[in-house]
Amino acid sequence: MTTTMTHVMRDAALIAAVTMVSLAARAQACEVAALAGDATRIVSGQARPLKLGESVGEGAQLRTGDSGRVRLRCPDGSSLVVGDRSQLTLTKLNLGTGGTPGYADGARDVSLLLERGLLGQKVTPSRSGKWEVRTPSAVTAVRGTEFLVEVGDNEQTSVHVQSGQVAVLPGPRAAGRTRGLGAQLPVVVDRAGGTECDVSQGCAAATPWPADKVRAVLDRLAGV
């Protein structure tokens, strides 16, 4: 084999390896599918505007302003909508997606940190793994469902389930107990139900939400 042929084969192998790594990374990142208003990404402590079609992977920190909205579309079919006045960090983003050369199918392992604001999610069902949202006062865990999480100015967390089921536990800074007679940890919230958690008293028992309250929250996620 000539030296030239050896170099060509080596370069081709390198290109193939880089391509597989790039495809694998893309399989574990979500795409900015829609934007409205003030929406930024924090990079090295500096805010820069998000761009339509931008890949958002593990460790990304997103912020929205008073009228900001961001819709993320993920390779496993799940989607997120970050509402106004929100701060979200994709702490862990292993979507377990297969079908990509060099990247095996595996258990999903997603952890999101919502420090403030509103997050809507439609999580594609998965046979294994976890999808959780952490806030200052709660941790929600799902396999596949559609639900909302909101963190208020006092770090109180509200969770509402539109379909499926969500298990809600007090967060690490919460008191670690559940409010309400007969309520037990975790609080299991079914369709059309909701719960509220705060750092001093833990999580309340699940109750149905009034239609006008649900509509008001959904309106804050509209437009993207």
Rank of each mutant, 00 (worst) to 15 (best):
G223E: 10
A13E: 14
T4N: 09
E31M: 13
T64Q: 06
D109H: 11
A12F: 04
V81E: 02
G152Q: 08
S44E: 15
L14Y: 09
G194E: 08
A60G: 04
M1N: 06
L62F: 10
I15R: 11
T89H: 04
G68A: 03
R179Q: 08
S200C: 04
S78W: 05
S78G: 11
E132C: 09
T140H: 11
V199Y: 00
S128P: 06
L62Q: 11
R173V: 02
G129L: 09
F147Y: 15
V214E: 07
T3N: 06
G144D: 13
S67C: 00
D153G: 14
A138R: 08
G106S: 14
P101G: 02
P208H: 00
I15A: 10
R71L: 06
V32R: 01
G53Q: 02
L14E: 15
V166S: 02
D38L: 05
G57L: 02
A60N: 03
R108E: 11
V142F: 07
S200E: 15
S126P: 04
G96Y: 03
L169K: 03
G65A: 02
L218R: 13
A34N: 07
L90I: 09
V188F: 06
L221E: 10
A36G: 13
D76V: 06
V149T: 15
G53W: 00
S158E: 06
T19E: 14
G96P: 03
R85G: 04
C197A: 10
K122A: 15
V70K: 00
R108F: 07
A39L: 10
T40G: 03
L62I: 15
A33Y: 04
G129S: 05
D153P: 08
T19R: 14
Q184Y: 00
V217N: 08
S158C: 00
G102H: 12
T3R: 10
P136I: 08
S200F: 15
L181G: 08
S78Y: 05
V214H: 01
R215V: 07
A25T: 13
A107V: 05
V133H: 04
A138D: 12
G164E: 03
G223I: 12
Q87Y: 04
T195K: 01
E31L: 14
T140D: 13
G77R: 01
R116F: 02
D84Y: 00
C30R: 07
N94L: 12
V166P: 03
D38T: 11
R191F: 05
R69P: 10
A205L: 09
C74T: 09
G96F: 02
P208V: 04
A211Q: 15
G129C: 09
T4W: 07
R108K: 13
A211G: 07
L169E: 08
S111G: 12
V187S: 01
E155K: 07
D11F: 06
P75Y: 01
R10Q: 14
L35C: 05
P125I: 13
R177H: 14
P170V: 04
Q184T: 14
R73C: 00
E196H: 04
T2M: 03
D153E: 15
L221F: 13
F147C: 07
T135V: 13
G57A: 01
T6N: 15
A211D: 15
